[in-house]
């Protein structure tokens, strides 16, 4: 499949502060492509540049040098902005600060309304989007009465109703409780599988990144590692060095290995770990 988003030697820095001092580059010379239909996790600690990276994908941030293209369109060209945002939708960290309407379904309709879609078509898309995130029963609720996870799902529905082909989620679970996190992650995984929507999940939770097809680790504005979760998490020590976590299952395998036990160390989740341990004990 083709690439929906492409970064070519992209660097970016925020505008100078009040004293006029130039800030360091927030993103340095990043080159990568996001395959259409894939589920990519962008992992990094706070201040690593991962949010800046996310905002480069839909023309909120424009590269200082290099080029970002969405579906072949250059984000630096203002004429493309609308088309780009129609292709790449974004969900932010704070669920409260992205819901604009006082009724759930009105909020989901906000995007299509802005695009000038026919009223009947908007209705159809809104219902469809709310069903896709399992929030249809809440369509007439007031957003402030919903839980954090539900609000995030409404925000995701708002993006789907615009029929975007790619959703970029900027730490969507950072402010949620464990149940809210599960809800949101299950939703985006389902959208990726069932609807083929490309998902870029920016996060610092490694347990979320493990579930992606591909993990890009960003540190200090640069791509530090890029590969399948198995490839990336097998480098446990390096990840810990840049302030990230690795699954405890992986850590356990590493610890056993260090004690001279013959166990594979590319373990990602508890099932694999249990299997490996059982196998070990049987031998």
């Amino acid at each position: 499949m083709g690439k929906i988003i492409e970064f070519e030697n992209v660097s970016f820095r925020y505008e100078a502060d009040e004293e006029g001092q130039q800030l360091p580059l927030a993103v340095k010379n990043i080159s990568l492509g996001i395959e259409e239909g894939s589920f990519v996790a962008v992992l990094g600690h706070n201040g690593s540049g991962k949010s800046t990276f996310a905002k480069l994908t839909n023309a909120i941030n424009i590269p200082e040098s290099g080029k970002v293209t969405v579906n072949g369109l250059d984000t630096a060209d203002e004429n493309n902005t609308d088309e780009i945002r129609r292709t790449v939708g974004m969900v932010f960290q704070n669920p409260d600060n992205q819901i604009v309407a006082t009724i759930v379904e009105d909020d989901v309709a906000f995007g299509p309304e802005n695009l000038g879609v026919e009223p009947k078509e908007i209705r159809r898309r809104v219902d469809d989007a709310l069903k896709a995130v399992n929030m249809y029963d809440f369509r007439n609720s007031e957003p402030y009465k919903l839980s954090g996870g539900q609000k995030q799902r409404v925000a995701i529905a708002g993006v789907i109703a615009m029929q975007t082909r790619c959703i970029v989620l900027d730490e969507p679970t950072a402010m949620l409780d464990p149940n809210g996190r599960k809800e949101v992650l299950a939703t985006i995984k389902r959208l990726n599988k069932e609807r083929g929507i490309t998902v870029v999940l920016v996060t610092h939770f490694m347990d979320e990144a493990v579930q992606a097809d591909r993990v890009v680790v960003i540190d200090n504005g640069e791509v530090y590692a890029d590969g399948t979760p198995r490839e990336v998490f097998s480098k446990a020590d390096e990840l810990i060095a840049v302030g990230l976590d690795v699954p405890q299952a992986t850590q356990l395998a590493k610890a056993l290995k260090a004690q001279g036990v013959d166990i594979r160390t590319d373990i990602l989740n508890e099932e694999e770990c249990i299997q490996a341990v059982m196998k070990l004990l049987k031998e």
Partner: peptide
């Protein structure tokens, strides 16, 4: 902070003011 983030979010959803907008609820 909320206003700032909200403005971003609205921009991302292609909000450009009242022109050429349609409404779901007629």
């Amino acid at each position: 902070r909320r206003a700032y983030e909200l403005a971003f979010a609205m921009e991302c959803r292609c909000y450009t003011g009242g022109n050429n907008r349609t409404r779901m609820k007629q």
